[in-house]
Design a protein around this nucleic acid. Structure first.
Length: 316
DNA sequence: AATGGAGACAACCGCATCTGC
DNA sequence: CGCAGATGCGGTTGTCTCCAT
């Protein structure tokens, strides 16, 4: 038996992406929007499989991605969300709109795991081990119950009216949604090109082997779009994405930043949709905030869990 | 200056889930 | 309802960079 491979293994390029490939992919997505990944390699001539294209876009090229160090705030959120959701990185990432699931997963595996282990060793039994009393199984089950409940509510139109910032994209016809996506892409085309240019100028990383030809070909490719790039902006790193799509997420005003997160998610739905399924159901922000940042996080976690169970009890 | 090890991160692989027919 | 193709997700691997020796 066996499932056929997602693409012909013959003639498919693997390994790190070159800037040229990035440009081709970004240009294509600017024009057509993300999605229909199957057709991307054939339409662009990229010798990559569709999966690889999607991954490259969602994890690296997609606008709005924040790169670089995680803040304490983000770190805390990841730790707590991981405690609640387990290794459901996509779900965790949906609470951190600027981070990809891959980023979070990597950060967890390389930094936080060790950090927590150290903490655990130091505290020996209390601390994090105490705040994580339940097995991953149970946590997952509870999350699933919540998701199922939400889905059922939506299906039956039983749920309460939503707050404006949580307009469900599911209620919007796919075509309409895509139209708005396309327009956003058109307006951000120049930005993406600029950013890629900056990225080329500043990043020491991407395939140094072909840097010369790459740079010149990039200049050619980007010539039109990059003409308006100003000096101040070009000083940015790959994180140049930040300057265009950033929002303040300082620790001092968590509540505000969380709300802004929500707004960003909605307003730039386009930026989120590909990697953050619109079906993703979020716990109300206020409760989440409380849970994340309250000293008595454990208590709030119980509230969350109870909410799931209690609410589910009424339904099932 | 050379080298080996560790850390960090991008990308791949395979299974799960979704969706359209 | 079942099937096949498309897409999403999480675990894992490969490679690059940095640092200590």
């Amino acid at each position: 038996m066996g499932r056929p491979p997602c693409c012909d293994k013959v003639g498919v390029k693997k390994g790190p992406w070159t800037p040229e490939e990035d440009i081709i992919l970004v240009s294509y997505i600017q024009e057509h929007g993300p999605g229909n990944w199957r057709s991307v390699p054939t339409n662009t001539g990229l010798l990559r499989c569709s999966k690889s294209c999607r991954l490259r876009w969602t994890n690296y090229l997609r606008p709005g991605i924040k790169r670089g160090n995680f803040t304490d705030h983000e770190e805390k959120m990841i730790i707590h969300l991981q405690a609640l959701l387990g290794n459901r990185w996509a779900a965790i990432a949906s609470y951190l709109p600027q981070r990809t699931d891959n980023d979070i997963k990597n950060y967890w595996n390389t930094h936080l795991k060790k950090k927590l282990k150290k903490l655990q060793d130091g505290q020996n039994q209390d601390g994090f081990s105490a705040s994580q009393p339940k097995g991953q199984w149970e946590r997952r089950l509870q999350t699933d119950i919540r998701l199922a409940k939400q889905a059922l509510c939506e299906a039956l139109s039983l749920d309460k009216p939503r707050s404006p910032e949580s307009k469900p994209s599911t209620a919007e016809p796919q075509t309409r949604q895509f139209q708005s996506q396309a327009s956003t892409y058109a307006s951000s085309a120049e930005n993406i090109a600029k950013l890629l240019e900056n990225w080329m100028k500043n990043s020491p990383k991407p395939s140094q082997t072909n840097s010369d030809t790459t740079q010149s070909s990039l200049n050619n490719t980007l010539g039109a779009n990059s003409s308006s790039s100003d000096g101040a902006h070009s000083a940015n790193t790959p994180e140049g994405f930040d300057s265009l799509f950033s929002f303040n997420s300082s620790n001092s005003d968590v509540s505000q930043s969380m709300d802004e997160n929500a707004n960003l998610t909605t307003e730039n739905g386009l930026l989120q949709d590909e990697s953050k399924p619109s079906m993703e159901v979020h716990v109300p922000l206020s409760l989440l905030e409380k849970w994340l940042f309250d000293e008595s996080a454990a208590q709030a976690q119980d509230d969350l869990i109870n909410m799931s169970i209690d609410d589910s009890a009424g339904l099932f």
